[in-house]
């Protein structure tokens, strides 16, 4: 036991110090209830209703489903861009503002994160309707003269999902920005860089890895979202996750459901692999 803690450089073998046994219970759970069922689902996509790739042909060959793919990427992309544009400045301020203020802002962020997902979505459903508070306020302020369509369309989905994703951009970025030495920026300023140059040439590049990691995470999470698009989107905003659920729950078509799930799975895993490869904070070890 004592030895194994100090010698990590030696040859690696399975079960060398018995610590593999600690992992075993969790591994059993993951294999039986995660790896196996997902593989079984994917099998069904090529076996039902008959062996072959016809499910994939139908899925990738129909304009209806292609529109769903498009929608999925549009929504995920839009949510990511908006979250980053709004999240970056907020994280920036949080990284440098006095503690007592940043603590308050952080508390608000965490409260919003921990509030029940359905409660938040329900609130947006009511807030965004044509006769909702937002439209009523804008109307009475004279900013608009007829109600905006804010829900059951792309706008509604984007607002609802950005709300959910913002913390996932802001929180990791704060740490990244805090770890940048202000002296570097002072040096840049001394060398004659103006504010814009300081930002574009120093601050942004230094925080880019953290920003990219956060953006990628938001993108991946958005791709697979089900509840919020289902409640805030319109009939023409269906996303991939909703399609999977619809195939299985309403159409009882496991073959197509499995095929759509595989598409979603592959996109997600590829992006996850990219994230692990380029942005893994642990990779140095």
């Amino acid at each position: 036991m004592v030895m194994s803690a100090t010698t990590d450089g030696g040859q690696r073998t399975l079960r060398r110090d018995g610590s593999f046994g600690y992992v075993a219970p969790g591994l059993l759970l993951i294999v039986f209830f995660f790896v196996v069922p997902v593989l079984m689902l994917l099998m069904r996509s090529v076996l039902e209703p008959a062996p072959g790739l016809q499910n994939y042909v139908e899925l990738l060959g129909s304009t209806t489903y292609l529109r769903v793919f498009m929608n999925t990427f549009i929504v995920a992309g839009l949510v990511t861009v908006v979250s980053v544009l709004i999240g970056y400045p907020v994280a920036w301020l949080l990284a440098i503002m006095p503690d007592r203020w940043s603590r308050l802002v952080l508390a608000i962020i965490i409260l919003s994160m921990w509030t029940n997902l359905l409660a938040r979505t329900y609130a947006w459903m009511v807030l965004l309707q044509r006769t909702g508070v937002i439209n009523k306020t804008l109307l009475s302020l004279g900013i608009i003269d007829k109600p905006l369509s804010l829900v059951n369309n792309l706008v509604g989905v984007t607002i609802g999902m950005t709300y959910i994703m913002l913390p996932f951009v802001i929180l990791p970025l704060i740490g990244v920005l805090k770890s940048i030495d202000p002296a570097i920026l002072r040096a840049a300023a001394l060398c004659g860089a103006n504010k814009r140059q300081c930002f574009a040439r120093v601050l942004l590049p230094l925080s880019l890895p953290g920003l990219a990691a956060g953006a990628l995470m938001v993108f991946v999470m958005s791709l697979g979202y089900y509840v919020t698009p289902a409640l805030l989107g319109g009939t023409s905003n269906m996303m991939l996750a909703e399609l999977v659920a619809q195939f299985v729950q309403s159409l009882v078509n496991w073959g197509m459901g499995g095929a759509a799930a595989l598409v979603l799975l592959i996109v997600t895993l590829v992006l996850y692999a990219i994230q692990l490869k380029f942005f893994n904070p642990n990779r140095a070890r």
Binding site: F33, F34, V36, P37, V38, M40, L41, R44, V220, M221, L223, G224, Y225, Y226, L240, A241, V244, A245, V248, W254, G257, G258, A261, L264, L265, T268, L269, Y272
Partner: peptide, 15 residues
């Protein structure tokens, strides 16, 4: 954690 929950949900539901 990273996998779309709906994929896991559908797979587990079948199992």
């Amino acid at each position: 954690m990273i996998l779309p929950v709906v994929v896991l949900a559908v797979a587990l539901y079948a199992l």
